[in-house]
């Protein structure tokens, strides 16, 4: 597992209070991990802070699962920080 994936997982475990084993790539934040709309906003913000990336709203709307978050962050890693 990449370093990014590991960090994403630990943020989700911390913020949503779920077990690490539940945080699979397919897991949906809202359907599987019990997040509400504010939790989801918080997760995106934590990702932005942790990886020093800016995730535009239209991109954020497409990040619904753990795997989608990891993919986005890995793809944009090292690019245009802030």
């Amino acid at each position: 597992m990449s370093e990014i994936a590991q960090k994403v997982k630990s943020i989700i475990v911390e913020k949503l209070g779920v077990e690490e084993s539940e945080v699979t790539p397919e897991a949906s934040f809202t359907n599987d991990l019990g997040a509400d709309s504010l939790d989801t906003v918080e997760l995106i913000m934590e990702f932005e802070k942790e990886f020093n990336q800016s995730i535009p709203d239209d991109e954020a709307e497409k990040i619904l699962t753990v795997g989608q978050a990891i993919d986005f962050l890995e793809k944009n890693a090292g690019q245009a920080g802030k």
Binding site: L38, V41, E42, M45, K82
Partner: peptide, 9 residues
């Protein structure tokens, strides 16, 4: 740096 990343809670 001034970017408002205010926690939703």
């Amino acid at each position: 740096d001034g970017t408002p990343r205010i926690n939703p809670f």
